[in-house]
Design a protein around this nucleic acid. Structure first.
Lengths: 236, 236
DNA sequence: ACCTGAACACCGTTCAAGT
DNA sequence: ACCTGAACACCGTTCAAGT
């Protein structure tokens, strides 16, 4: 406890400060700008100093995931399991959206951290508390996949066109015309957005709507199977 | 046509040969072993020679994705849209499973290649031919997400334990005991596999079953909404 | 005993020198 | 005009030398 004999050059580094700085750096400069060297520079230490607190870069990324998972709200006291799980997953989604790099880092992890296991254990417990069998819950978790984290792989990351920032409206219209002849079905459904039908190009989809659409479709499906007393012994 | 004046030191390099060699190298040595340098070494050329055929490494990876997408079977002549789409997606899954690195590379692409657009256009066309509205098809494609490629992000990549290759059975049992007290719900559903209930640790799940479970749940959901005349103007 | 600068073994890509 | 070796600006991590 009386350890202030050390000359206080810098704030003493610890694992938590390293992880928080890494999250902040990734938030600000992007995950591709996060390197052991750039993080060390950020913390005003020599790169090797980081290796006192994380074994290697993989463990640094693991720790960053746990920081984000810690931001997910605990379960609220909903009456039914479906809305409780729905609410929790949407909370995870908000946490993920605050850190645009997080979904890609979660995808890249090869073994789960304690924080990840705690979250998954808790979600599974919510299904079981709702009365779903361990069997059905097992398959439900697989079906949700990365959706338990509040994200899914987007097919069209930003825009369907090859040159999204191209400012020339005439070239853009020509491009759309080419696309329409070669990929008529894609163009049709991209434009099939009744709510904001004014713009020529669909300027991206309502990601939140799409996420909830698929989530509700799955949750409703689980509920239906549960009511039917489904087991994996028989295919439905 | 009379161009054999060139002394034939090596087979002439072209884009197709570069892409095929890259796919073969990734299949054999893993995607992390694929670098512009290692690929050049494989083809007995100097690294810079590759830049004649691909602009950079990103474009190389794009080309590799197109090679794999080209392996997906064309649509079979199924009577109903649901089984036609199901069959096609399961064909995509087989192509992906032949190249374990492919799903991660597809995830990492930032803009779609022509081959990718052709495939997506074709799947969308199958929904439309089945009578689904452009609106519902739009949301269906989002809900499928990366599942149109035949893969989904697995929550437990290999095994739930931190030391999968640990041979000591006593230590493994102790680890399982620790896990069971800390993550009781996870352990319960991991063990809830009626078909191969003999093994103590569930030795991984039946990925094919899980994939088809979720795929069918989604396709059945789309069919139900279609029959109800659902539109995104109203929430279901 | 502890800390850390230099070094190692890589990357993708640029560029100028050589033929 | 074409090809390519060396170089540049990075990585994550090791390791031995210095205090």
């Amino acid at each position: 406890m009386t350890q202030q004999t050390e000359p206080a050059r810098r704030k003493p580094l610890n694992r938590d400060r390293v992880l928080r700085a890494a999250v902040a750096l990734a938030d600000r400069a992007g995950i591709e700008a996060l390197s052991m060297r750039s993080l060390a520079h950020e913390l005003d230490v020599v790169p090797m100093a980081l290796y006192k607190h994380v074994a290697n870069k993989e463990q640094l990324l693991d720790g960053m995931v746990d920081v984000i998972v810690g931001e997910i709200d605990p379960p609220a006291g909903d009456a039914d399991w479906k809305s409780a799980i729905r609410r929790r997953i949407l909370s995870a989604r908000r946490a993920l959206l605050r850190h645009p790099w997080a979904s890609r880092v979660i995808e890249s992890r090869t073994s789960p951290t304690p924080g990840v296991l705690d979250y998954l254990n808790s979600i599974i417990g919510m299904f079981r508390a709702g009365g779903l069998s361990a069997d059905l819950t097992h398959h439900a978790m697989h079906a949700l996949g990365s959706r338990v984290w509040g994200f899914t792989q987007e097919l069209f990351p930003a825009s369907p066109g090859p040159a999204p920032a191209d400012a020339d409206p005439q070239a853009l219209a020509a491009l759309l015309g080419e696309m329409a002849t070669r990929y008529p079905h894609i163009i049709e459904i991209v434009l099939a957005r009744p709510h904001d039908g004014e713009s020529v190009v669909g300027q991206g989809c309502d990601d939140q709507f799409e996420f909830e659409f698929a989530l509700d479709l799955l949750l409703d499906g689980f509920e239906r199977l549960h009511r039917q007393g489904w087991t994996s012994a028989e295919r439905f």
